[in-house]
Design a binder for these strands. Sequence first.
DNA 1: AGATATTTTTAGAATAGTTCTTGATCTAAA
DNA 2: TTTAGATCAAGAACTATTCTAAAAATATCT
Lengths: 153, 153
Amino acid sequence: MMARQRTDSKVTEDFGGLRMTKQRQVVYDVLTDLGSTHPTASEVYVTAKERMPTISLATVYNCLETLTGAGAIKQVNIDREASRYCPNLQPHAHFFCTGCNKVFDIGLESDADATSVWSLPEGCRLEEMHVAMRGICGICDRCSQCCAESGQS
Amino acid sequence: MMARQRTDSKVTEDFGGLRMTKQRQVVYDVLTDLGSTHPTASEVYVTAKERMPTISLATVYNCLETLTGAGAIKQVNIDREASRYCPNLQPHAHFFCTGCNKVFDIGLESDADATSVWSLPEGCRLEEMHVAMRGICGICDRCSQCCAESGQS
DNA sequence: AGATATTTTTAGAATAGTTCTTGATCTAAA
DNA sequence: TTTAGATCAAGAACTATTCTAAAAATATCT
């Protein structure tokens, strides 16, 4: 699935013949390094600029779009807030906690199919599905019970 | 659940003690009259202005926000495109057809539970869930087979 | 009813995230 | 090494939405 190429330190992945420029590699690495924080384009930009001071915000946007198009990363939208980006390619939903403002990946129950609960009209070809949830995460919920404060991050 | 009030022609609904001003009534009526087209704020504005020429776009935004907050209508977001609004209060998903650019309501299979397929961490309080799908609707799919054209609306 | 307070509306300015434009730079191919 | 195409950088432009301030409408209180 992923071909290796020569690089000094990092595994460079080949996503569908995408030319992996230095900028794209930095953006991709930042995204995987930020792990599950689901950063926005601006947040990616801040960290990318530390590693490559000449990179521009427009380039970060370009790279994120290109990587998304190539299927290397996913774009996550919660309402109309700034898009976030996510390196998790497994099928999953996103839980947005209104207490701490964090986004969590939510996996499928084992051998569950997210589409099967929906009554799709005959002939529909489903190509993508985005599931966004809002609520209070377990940490914030527990915190609000014991200290009666909103668990700000 | 919904108290009736005197009006000339239309049923005026009382959503959680919301003051139903003329503007809010017009916006709400436009939304139900546009049926399942899932109009944007601007599209609501165009039709609302025909019925009440003095109404402003800001008021349409205000009314849509107020009605959404009162639970009278739902806001629908597909990626970061302009928000659409929907008078269907039943739990349902939205299918966005990339062929004809239309949005369809997708109901749940009978006695299915959309949340049960997701493995929510213990202690999470889920308050809202939005399911957005992209693909080709049955009409566009059939059309592309017989006439080899993208079924533009 | 009349006076006062509160809410809502209007119009336009402001904002934020994103996209576009243009010229420079890089890369791949011939 | 020349040429063509892709990518990058910087800043301008765009668009959906929110904010602001003043006017209008509505509710509340004597």
